[in-house]
Design a protein around this nucleic acid. Structure first.
Lengths: 182, 182
DNA sequence: CATTTATTTCTGTAATTTCCGAAATTAATA
DNA sequence: TATTAATTTCGGAAATTACAGAAATAAATG
């Protein structure tokens, strides 16, 4: 019996689906994720179809997508040869997995593209300086942010959580940042 | 004369528009932003229409949206009573403005919703414990992340940049995180 | 105050994306 | 290897979203 019978779980699933679509994630994909997240046992595709009234094929595609994000994985249930699926339950790991995949899909190609553009424009006097500069700056900016992310991502989970709990207190360790605000 | 004549600028604009649509931002909106970012002078709506071959109405809506994000602002040019528009050129400020607005629109409502749900389920024995727990944990997780963001956001820009340049070295200030990796 | 010009709102259409159902493929058991 | 069941792929229908053009509103100048 599925969590779908619980009105609050239903709401959660619908809301999660809604949210996904505002961040470029297919609604079915995020709904299925929400369902698996709330389920206390592995579900097979058929069950997901029924619970969310989605087409079998749709569920198949969505599950592949979720596995691509590394936030859902296949398992097997004894005496049942169908694939079953469970969601990552550690929210920190889930979050990091999503960020990593979005970076790979969305950010890395942008950096590559901006890099090409910058290089292609370098030294060409017929192109206004401000255009070259601004595209260059954008490239630099995104690269810097991404570099920071890569470094921080390499830290232990516990360290990261400790840093987060520190909040704005981290500023104490930056020389010459005595005034608290902008 | 518009930057649109430069093939590299064109590419930048198209690519930027493409990217926007992967993050839940209307293509016209992000294209217009890219155009203004590359322009060295304020543009009026009509110019934008021509440069990007968009309908006047479309441009109007998009400009309102960009102003809502606080990354484009109106200006006036002497001897011309039309509104002109310029983009925020400081990429850090731009980034922070976008994050702030997306938080307001997308994250805050989620937190509110999850809070309601958690509260509504509290103590109701007929709802499985794991469902209550997991929705509760999600609420807590997103709230924590957001809390951290709010704190960090309050720091001086220079401090933030200094922290970023520190990269993974910030871990030094966390007690007992001597081992470098997960 | 009338006229011109800029801007926004509204509505129908076009384009894109999502999703279903059928067909094809793959895997598992006997 | 044949048979059955599970899964994936594919093409088109349905729904959503973006967009253009017209109409309405607002602002500015003479």
């Amino acid at each position: 019996m599925s969590v779908t019978r619980i009105p609050e779980a239903q709401e959660y699933i619908l809301h999660w689906g809604e949210m996904g679509s505002h961040w470029g994630v297919n609604r079915s994909v995020s709904q299925i994720h929400a369902l698996l997240y709330l389920s206390d046992r592995p579900l097979h595709a058929e069950e997901i179809c029924e619970s969310l009234s989605l087409a079998r094929s749709n569920v198949s595609t969505a599950l592949k997508e979720l596995q691509g994000y590394n936030i859902v994985r296949r398992t097997h249930v004894v005496g049942d040869r169908r694939d079953h699926f469970v969601a990552e339950l550690d929210l920190w790991d889930m979050f990091m997995a999503i960020v990593a995949e979005r970076k790979r899909r969305e950010i890395d190609p942008i950096i590559a593209r901006l890099g090409e553009l910058s290089e292609r424009m370098a030294g060409r006097e017929e192109i206004p300086g401000h255009v070259r500069q601004r595209i260059g700056r954008m490239h630099e900016f995104i690269s810097t942010l991404t570099g920071w992310y890569l470094q921080v991502r390499g830290l232990k989970k516990s360290t990261l959580i400790a840093l987060m709990k520190l909040g704005s207190k981290v500023a104490r360790f930056v020389p010459g940042s005595s005034t608290p605000n902008n």
